[in-house]
Amino acid sequence: MSLSPAELFTPQLSFASYSSAFCIADYQDSDFARYAQPLPDKLGRAVAKRKAEYLAGRHCASQALQMLGLPHTVIASADNRAPIWPKGIQGTISHTQEVAMAMVSDDPKVRGLGIDLERKMSDKQERELQTQILAKAEQAAFEQLSKTQSCPLTLIFSAKESIYKALYPVVQRFFGFEAACLIEHSDNQLHFALTETLHETLPQGTRISVYYQLSDELVLTECCLRAAP
C-alpha cells in the first residue's frame, strides 16, 4: 500500500499538519515495516481496513512531527486508544475512507487539538440521524446553518468529534455529543457552548469554536483548546 501526500485542505489552524491518501485494497501487513511503524499486537487480527487506517494515521503523525524538527516517531496508543504524543506535544489524527490527516503543535499554550475528516452524509442519513446527533436546544442554530450548507448535520457531527479530541487531554474522560451545544455559525466557524462542566477550567457555558471547510466529498473541522491568557 502506498501512502501518497494529499493536499486535501489547507488547514485554518496554523500548526504542522500532513495528509495522505491510500488504497485499502493494496494493504499488506508488510506495509508497517515499509513505513517504519510497528504493527500493534492488538491489531493482529483486525481487518485490513482497520490496519490500513491506523498505519496511514500514524504515518501522517510522524510526518507532521518531523515538520517540528523531531526525528521519526512512533505514536503508540493508550488503553483508551488515544495516541500517546511525545512530551510537550499536542496532536490529533483523523481518517475516513482512504484519506488520513494529522496535526501537531509544540506551543505550550495549546492544551489540546482536534481535527476530524468526514465523508458528507447523504440527505437520507442527515434526516435519519438528526435525533442522535442534535439536541432540541440546537434546532434553531441548525436550521440557520441549513440555509447556507448542504450537509449541516455532517458539519455538526464532525465539529463535535473535533471538540472531543481537543478537550480530552484536559478532561481525561468520556463525554457525549450533548456536552456541546451549537449556538451560531459564521462563514468558516461553528460556535458551541458547553452544557455541563467538564473540568474546572471548562465550566458550563464555556464557548468553543471550530473551524470548518468543505470539498465536493469531504468535511474538515479543526478545534484548538488554548490556555487562558
Rank of each mutant, 00 (worst) to 15 (best):
R45S: 10
R58P: 00
V74M: 03
A78S: 15
W85K: 11
C60L: 08
Q63K: 15
K42P: 00
V74C: 08
G88F: 12
V47Y: 02
V74Y: 05
G57T: 07
R58W: 05
K42S: 11
A56M: 03
L65R: 06
S62W: 05
M67A: 14
N80W: 06
Q37E: 11
K51S: 04
V47D: 05
K49L: 09
V74T: 15
G57E: 03
A36L: 11
S77M: 10
I75M: 07
I75T: 07
P83T: 08
S77W: 01
A48F: 02
R50P: 02
K51P: 04
E53A: 09
A61W: 02
T73V: 13
G88M: 12
A48W: 00
R81P: 03
P71N: 13
T73L: 03
I84R: 14
D41G: 07
M67K: 15
T73N: 07
A36M: 07
P71Q: 13
L70N: 05
D41F: 08
A56G: 06
S77D: 13
T73G: 04
C60S: 03
A78I: 03
P40L: 01
P83D: 06
I75G: 01
D41V: 13
K87T: 14
K49Q: 14
E53Q: 07
R58H: 12
Q66E: 15
G88A: 11
P38M: 09
H59W: 15
P83V: 06
R45L: 09
Y54V: 00
A76K: 09
L43P: 00
A46T: 01
L65C: 10
A56I: 02
D41W: 07
A48T: 04
K51G: 00
L70P: 06
R45I: 00
V47L: 09
K87H: 14
H59K: 12
Q63C: 14
Q37T: 06
L55I: 05
L43T: 00
V74H: 11
D41P: 06
L55V: 07
R50W: 04
S62E: 07
P40A: 05
A82W: 03
P86F: 11
A52Q: 02
K51N: 05
G57R: 02
P83I: 08
Y54F: 15
A46G: 04
G57C: 06
R45K: 15
A76N: 12
K42H: 14
G69Y: 10
K87V: 12
L68Q: 13
W85Y: 11
K87M: 11
P38A: 10
I84D: 09
G57A: 09
C60P: 01
K51H: 09
D79K: 14
L55A: 06
K49I: 09
H59M: 03
G44A: 13
S77I: 01
K49P: 06
A36I: 00
A36K: 09
D79Y: 07
N80P: 05
S62M: 12
